[in-house]
C-alpha cells in the first residue's frame, strides 16, 4: 500500500502541476487544438481519479492520517474504546468534511448554470422564431450580427437576422458548422467540468490553467471543424463579420479581440500536416486517465476486507 500511496502522490503531482504547465506552453496546441483539448480532458479526469484514490487511501489505510476509519465503523457498535481509534476517527471525519466542503462549492455553480440556461431558453421562446431552412436554428430579429449556441433543447443554435443578412450563404454555413462542432463535441460539458473543478480546487495549477487555456482551444477546434468543410477563407471572413458570442452562463467563452486575432492568424497560417501529433495526444490522454484509474482500482482491491 505504501507503493500505491507514493504512486498516487506522484500522479497528483504530475497531473496537477506538470501537466498543466507543459500543456499550457505547448506549441502543438495551435495547430492541433482538438488534440490539445483531448490532453487537457485526460489530465483533468486523471487528476480527479488520483485525488479520489488518495482520499480513499487516507481514509482506509491504517497508519495514515485517517487511521482506523474502517475499524471505528466496525467497533462503534461494540462497547470497546481505544484512544487511537478516537483520534483516527476524528482525522477521518476531518478529511471527509474537508472533501465535502470543497466539492459542495461546485454544486450551486452547476445549479446556477443550468438555471440560467433554462431562463435564457424561456426568454428566447418569447422572441425567437424557428428557422425554416435549418432544423436546429432559432432566429432572433435584430440587426446586431450575432451567433451562439445553447446546449439542450431542440433548436440549439441562435443566430440573429443581422447575421443572416450580413453573411454570404457559404459564410453562414461555416458559422453553423462551427456551432454544430461545439454541440457535437460536447464542449459545454467539458467547460462545465472545468468550471466545477476550478471552483472546488482553485489552487491546483492544472485546473487554473485549463480555465484560461481551454476555452480558446475549443473555439479553435470548432473553427477547424468548419474549415474542414468550408475552407479557411470562408471561415475567416465569417469570423470577421460576426460576433460569435459565448452561450449564456457557464457555456462557451472566448471570442473577442485578442483571442479572435489569434484565431484569425491561425487560419492564415498553412496547415500543419504532421500527423504524428494526433495519435500521440490520444495516447497521452488515455495514459493520463488509465494510470490513475488502475492505481485507484488497486487501492480499492487492497483495502482490507474487514470493512
Amino acid at each position: 500500500m505504501l507503493v500505491l500511496g507514493v504512486q498516487l502522490v506522484f500522479l497528483v503531482g504530475a497531473l496537477g502541476w506538470c501537466a498543466g504547465a507543459s500543456l499550457d506552453g505547448a506549441s502543438f496546441a495551435r495547430h492541433h487544438p482538438a488534440s490539445a483539448v483531448l490532453c487537457w480532458t485526460g489530465a483533468v479526469l486523471g487528476l480527479w481519479a488520483s485525488l479520489f484514490g488518495l482520499v480513499l487511501l487516507l481514509l482506509f489505510w491504517p497508519g495514515a492520517a485517517g487511521h482506523g476509519f474502517a475499524e471505528m465503523l466496525s467497533t462503534c457498535l461494540t462497547p470497546h474504546s481505544h484512544p487511537g481509534l478516537l483520534w483516527g476517527g476524528l482525522g477521518s471525519c476531518a478529511i471527509a468534511v474537508l472533501c465535502s466542503v470543497r466539492l459542495s462549492r461546485g454544486v450551486p455553480r452547476a445549479w446556477r448554470t443550468v438555471r440560467s440556461r433554462r431562463r435564457h431558453r424561456s426568454m428566447l421562446r418569447l422572441v425567437a422564431r424557428a428557422d425554416d431552412r435549418h432544423p436546429d436554428v432559432l432566429l432572433l430579429d435584430h440587426p446586431l450580427p450575432v451567433a451562439y449556441c445553447l446546449p439542450a433543447g431542440a433548436r440549439s443554435i441562435v443566430i440573429s437576422s443581422g447575421a443572416r443578412t450580413r453573411l454570404a450563404p457559404a459564410e453562414l454555413a461555416a458559422v453553423l458548422a462551427h456551432e454544430r462542432a461545439h454541440l457535437r463535441q460536447r464542449h459545454h460539458a467539458l467547460l462545465m467540468l472545468l468550471d466545477l473543478s476550478h471552483a472546488a480546487l482553485p489552487w491546483l495549477p492544472t485546473f487554473r490553467r485549463a480555465m484560461t487555456a481551454v476555452p480558446l482551444l475549443l473555439e479553435m477546434a470548432a473553427d477547424d471543424a468548419a474549415v474542414r468543410r468550408h475552407g479557411p477563407e470562408t471561415v475567416r471572413s465569417a469570423l470577421e463579420n460576426l460576433a460569435v458570442l459565448p452561450g449564456p452562463s457557464g457555456t462557451l467563452a472566448a471570442a473577442g479581440d485578442r483571442p479572435l486575432t489569434r484565431r484569425l492568424d491561425r487560419l492564415d497560417a498553412a496547415a500543419d500536416t504532421r500527423s504524428i501529433t494526433r495519435p500521440l495526444a490520444r495516447i497521452a490522454a488515455v495514459v493520463s486517465v488509465a494510470a490513475p484509474l488502475t492505481t485507484v482500482a488497486l487501492t480499492i482491491a487492497s483495502i482490507p476486507p474487514t470493512c
Binding site: 440560467s116 446586431l144 440573429s160 476555452p215 459565448p246 449564456p248 457555456t251 471570442a255
Partner: peptide, 13 residues
C-alpha cells in the same frame, strides 16, 4: 438586446 447580452455575460473578454 438584453437576451443577446445575457449570452455574453460569461465571456472572459
Amino acid at each position: 438586446v438584453a437576451l443577446m447580452l445575457d449570452a455574453l455575460t460569461d465571456s472572459p473578454d
